[in-house]
Design a binder for these strands. Structure first.
Lengths: 309, 309
DNA sequence: CTGAAAGCGCTTACAG
DNA sequence: CTGAAAGCGCTTACAG
């Protein structure tokens, strides 16, 4: 009766429903799942939950999942070690899952993706499309890196320096795009500075960039790094954008509040998360699905200018 | 045998385990949950997942939960409306839950807490301890607000203005603490400016504070607001801290990178999240449990100074 | 020591 | 139209 399949007199139905209400009865979820085979948990596997891109993606996933009655379970991949990733995947698989979504922004996500069982519906939000064939909501940070670099070259900068985020084993798409743009323009390709994802490491990079005389433009792997780079440049007495132009990546909510406000390659992460849920529901077979192009665009603000003559 | 209860010959055991490995067999989680009654999902109910305090708290919850083999399910309370909160709670309760943790930082969390069934183990991370009696990891933002205000008064400011975050129906603890400190010192109590949680609304507040001649010190309800307030003051030609001192709340990772770096009342949200998991496991009866005092402390940086003579 | 049976709490097809 | 039975995939206590 509770499932609405058996017809009952309106009277009786009302009585039962009231009893349910009063006693606070809830059907046993485990029993329901067992008998119907319906699973309502989507597991999200991710290396991080708090940084802007990750957190926004998760927000989009949760929003889309909740809209169709699914609950989002989060399991953090807290080291790169194979066994810790296996343990996290095992923990996630211990639930009755409708499917899993992997945030493939880093090496941990890539690894988790390879060990998830083939039998489980899986999709990913990803900045690359190598390895196992699953539906991926791709954000094309390669063309983003290319466009951002071309924008700086177009302002008249002779070349563009780069502070890179860690890739998933190989250079990130934005780093590849940056290099491509420089090569296509015949501009010198400086060695990229490696960074983690934090403003603090960006600060270090900013300080060392400031000590070179030839730096007039810097593309940063994300906005937090860009914030730090700007601060590091300023600490060394350089002005942004008069002496050095800085571009970030992601369009962090504080980008417009920075001093100077940050020019950045914006990305709609929540939209990517919603797409990944759609893939799971649509049971698409595999391959990569480009995010709508609207989701990646350069937001020009105050941190960029033509080079000082 | 799988549960390890029945003794089997080592040989047979190995064979079976290999078969399990090869076939990728996984016990049906729903069936296990049904028969053992063991639940391994902790549901987190929260108005937000991306802002600093919320995201850090969730990170702590996930970390502590994973350490004991529990999975964290997240359900966002996306409006204040009673029916949308009920729908979110219903969705969460549709899973076989070990318990639920409510982030009681706002009106939505408070409401969710009141409608969760009495039969479910529940704990909360909270900045207040009214309403239903559940174990709460309390962060004492009231004393934090008091201490921050006293710090500014101690620098010699005649009074301290305040930009408030939304409370859960009533003023937040930090707002109450601010008022108490002013009253105790016999200082004038200016009308607080209301804000949401964003830097953008802080900016508006900063601009309007700059237009008054009497403002020399501002306590902000969180760091994002403080970032915006600083930017707004600067936009109106005032210098921080020379003309106006600004204090934030939370110790956001970018606080040290701001210009000037932000003095703020730091809070270890992840620790509060871990505590809430502990409460769930320990099945504490109710009431409020103060977070270790180490978790709340003033971090003095560059945004505060004695008033201009 | 091992295998067969009971039972967890539901849903659904089926007999009455 | 209604009630009783079968069965989802496990675990555990129990008979052999």
């Amino acid at each position: 009766m509770l499932s609405g399949s058996a017809p009952v007199s309106a009277d009786k139905r009302r009585q039962v429903l009231r009893a349910i209400e009063e006693l606070g009865y809830r059907p046993n979820a485990a029993a329901q799942a067992l008998v119907t085979g319906r699973r309502s948990i989507v597991s999200v596997l991710t290396a991080d939950t708090t940084r802007y891109g990750y957190a926004e993606t998760i927000r989009g996933i949760e929003e889309a999942a909740r809209a169709v009655g699914l609950v989002v379970a989060i399991t953090v991949l807290d080291t790169d070690a194979e066994e810790s990733i296996e343990a996290a995947v095992d923990l996630a698989l211990g639930q009755p899952l409708a499917g899993a979504i992997v945030l493939e922004f880093d090496i941990r996500g890539s690894r988790a993706l390879t060990i998830l069982p083939k039998s489980l519906p899986v999709s990913a939000v990803s900045s690359g499309s190598e390895g196992r064939r699953v539906p991926r909501a791709l954000f094309d940070d390669r063309s983003g890196g290319r466009d951002a670099t071309n924008y700086l070259l177009g302002l008249g900068h002779r070349t563009v320096h780069h502070v890179a985020v860690p890739g998933s084993g190989r250079p990130s798409g934005r780093t590849l795009g940056w290099r491509e743009a420089l090569e296509a323009a015949g501009a010198p390709v400086p060695e990229p500075l490696m960074s983690d994802w934090t403003a603090r490491s960006g600060y270090q990079a900013g300080v060392s960039l400031a000590r070179r005389r030839d730096v007039t433009a810097v593309l940063c792997g994300n906005d937090e790094i860009a914030f730090g780079v700007i601060k590091g440049l300023q600490a060394e007495g350089l002005r942004v954008p008069e002496d050095v132009s800085v571009v970030g990546f992601d369009d962090h909510p504080l980008a417009e509040m920075w001093t100077p406000s940050l020019t950045t390659m914006g990305q709609d992460f929540a939209e990517l998360g919603r797409m990944a849920v759609g893939f799971l529901l649509g049971r698409l077979g595999g391959g990569a699905y480009r995010a709508p192009s609207s989701s990646l665009k350069l937001v020009v603000r105050g941190s960029t200018a033509p080079p000082h003559p």
